[in-house]
């Protein structure tokens, strides 16, 4: 067959195009960041007053803060709730989403709760949560889970839904049992969407972590932000936010990396998405 030459030739330009696109985005991102930092610097210098320090002060404060034990203690404390809450939302959300996607009747009865979970302003739940569970780690974990689990469920459900029905039919012609259909078709088929949901949930979990600390249980990062605000230490306040952002971005980048490694066949979809968002 001559097809091997053809397909090898079409593969190469595709990857080099991709590389070009990635480099293009990187340059673009650096440029926008430079513009953003300059604008911040100028605004902070001339009009910022006590509440908005210039970019350079914030950068210096960030480096200082990274040397302080207080920050690392806050990071450790906040991340306990983040990790536990995020894990809980994956462990609960993936099976829930898969079942909802596969069994329409289950979905008909639970759809309303999912909608509620989607639209409820979670901040409103915090007082309730604290009243019933207290100020401990548990209430922070639950809030992080509430924040992030919807993303996992909705994406896992969508992942099952978009599986080509002919794959299921095909496996049935070879005598597949329901268990085999799950293991060999549904779970791998939904995996790209599941991974996307996990990545989005990670972002929501970070939000949940900070919000609960800001609004109710002032420990960890949220506690730091409140403390620096009370002391009018604006550079450190912004430095804390920068560090939270950096952690969130690092986590999401890691999730994206895992996503790409775990679902290489979905690579074109992932890469087009990553240039978009």
């Amino acid at each position: 067959m001559t097809a091997s030459g053809v397909s090898a030739a079409t593969r190469r330009p595709a990857t080099s195009l991709l590389r070009k696109a990635v480099h293009g985005t990187l340059l673009y991102q650096l440029l926008t960041f430079a513009v953003f930092a300059t604008a911040w610097e100028v605004y902070g210098r001339y009009w910022g007053g006590i509440l908005l320090p210039p970019f350079s002060d914030t950068a210096v404060a960030t480096v200082e803060l990274l040397g302080e034990a207080e920050l690392w203690k806050a990071l450790w404390l906040s991340n306990q709730a983040l990790v536990l809450g995020f894990l809980a939302s994956v462990v609960l959300g993936v099976p829930a989403g898969l079942l909802l996607g596969r069994f329409r009747t289950v979905e008909r009865y639970t759809d309303i709760y999912l909608s509620i979970l989607l639209v409820t302003p979670m901040a409103a739940v915090i007082p309730l949560l604290v009243m019933s569970v207290g100020f401990g780690l548990l209430s922070r974990v639950i809030l992080v889970t509430l924040f992030s689990v919807v993303m996992v469920i909705v994406n896992a459900r969508a992942g099952i839904r978009q599986i080509d029905a002919s794959l299921i039919e095909m496996s049935r012609t070879y005598g597949a049992s329901e268990a085999q259909i799950w293991r060999r078709i549904l779970i791998p088929g939904a995996l790209p969407a599941i991974m996307t949901g996990v990545r989005l949930a990670l972002g929501r979990a970070v939000t949940g972590m900070v919000i609960v600390e800001l609004l109710m249980v002032s420990v960890g990062f949220g506690g730091l932000i409140l403390e620096y605000r009370a002391l009018f230490e604006a550079p450190k306040l912004y430095a804390t936010i920068v560090i939270i952002l950096a952690e969130a971005l690092a986590l999401i980048a890691a999730a994206r990396w895992v996503e790409r490694k775990a679902t290489p066949w979905a690579a074109p979809r992932n890469s087009s998405r990553s240039t978009r968002d």
């Binding site: 080509d164 002919s166 794959l167 791998p188 088929g189 979905a266």
Partner: peptide, 10 residues
């Protein structure tokens, strides 16, 4: 044998 091939993409 299926019209849309029905191959496992992964």
């Amino acid at each position: 044998v299926f019209q849309n091939f029905a191959l496992l993409p992964w």
